[in-house]
Design a protein around this nucleic acid. Structure first.
Lengths: 169, 169
DNA sequence: CAGTTTATGTCAGCCTTGTTGACATTCCAA
DNA sequence: TTGGAATGTCAACAAGGCTGACATAAACTG
């Protein structure tokens, strides 16, 4: 990335903040996100699921036994929207919903073995692309990548993200 | 980002390629993309438009006089889908569609003054967030960010992205 | 205990934005 | 002149967002 390294190592150099650079960053996000979702999308299509199912599987796997409400906060959708997805996942035997032990109004969500299998397939496809990108860019670039992404999140979301990270680091 | 810098500067250190690190990267992409789209989304809602309109405005502004076909390739949607968006933008007087001079089957797309105004408002909101993130992370991180994003794109897309960059660098 | 709040689920209906398929128009090029 | 390319349009459909309304059970509170 020729002109990227031009702005790197600058310090007082603010070329990386020009509108042109920022617009390029915006386009890079757009195109990269497409690549980021492309591989799981192909797998999901075979099973008749969409990205919404992937997100649910991902975060249920990530925080075993999470409640519906917690998932709503993480995903930032309405309960009706999540419920539609969750219902099909439960019906299809990918997710198990257990009545909460402490608070019986709550439902604790878990992946079944079948759900875990699909989650791993989806995740592996996505991780494979990340792995290739990380390897191509190198550890220092990856650190910068994560720094910028984290700075781009909404404050509240960053807190959730950080918690999630800390809990399983 | 404490543990990010742990893996940075490693070289032979491959900690940044562990599944856990990759999963964190995946989540960072997910959350960051939400932040990335949040500000323009709010503006679009006021005008009764969606992200699809934003994308069209962005790329029409980016490559003045682009054809519909070219836009289809960049956006990666069907012409019917794009056409619906384009039609409303033209009806609302944000986009002008001129019959091609060389090839009169083609339509060359331009922003009107009104379209340019909205595009700048959307873009400025998005750039403001990028600017803040870039400033917080610093030029070296930004270079890494761009490297990883570029490596994450599909090959064909990366070619388009690179062309677009070179043409207006 | 009665009343309120909380967590969840569900029904109905709407919107945006993606998809396919069919078909018309225009016009370049062989 | 005919074939194919570029574009546009119509119809129908699906996923996955949304809101509003309502039901239930459980927990909390005075």
């Amino acid at each position: 990335m020729a002109e990227g390294s031009t702005s790197a190592m600058g310090g007082e150099n603010l070329l990386f903040l020009t509108d042109e650079q920022l617009r390029k960053g915006i386009e890079a996000m757009f195109f990269a996100y497409r690549g980021f979702t492309a591989d799981p999308d192909r797998i999901l299509e075979v099973h008749g699921y969409g990205r919404a199912h992937h997100r649910a599987l991902h975060f249920i796997n990530r925080t075993h036994g999470t409640t519906v409400n917690n998932l709503l906060n993480i995903l930032g959708v309405t309960k009706q929207s999540l419920n539609r997805v969750l219902r099909t996942l439960i019906e299809d035997g990918l997710v198990e919903s257990r009545v909460g032990r402490k608070d019986r109004r709550e439902r604790n969500l878990f992946l079944t073995e079948k759900g875990d299998t699909l989650e791993r397939a989806l995740s592996e496809a996505q991780r494979e692309r990340m792995r290739a990108a990380y390897r191509a860019a190198g550890p220092q670039a990856v650190a910068g990548f994560r720094q910028v992404l984290e700075a781009m999140m909404d404050d509240e979301i960053r807190r959730q993200y950080t918690n999630m990270r800390d809990r399983r680091a």
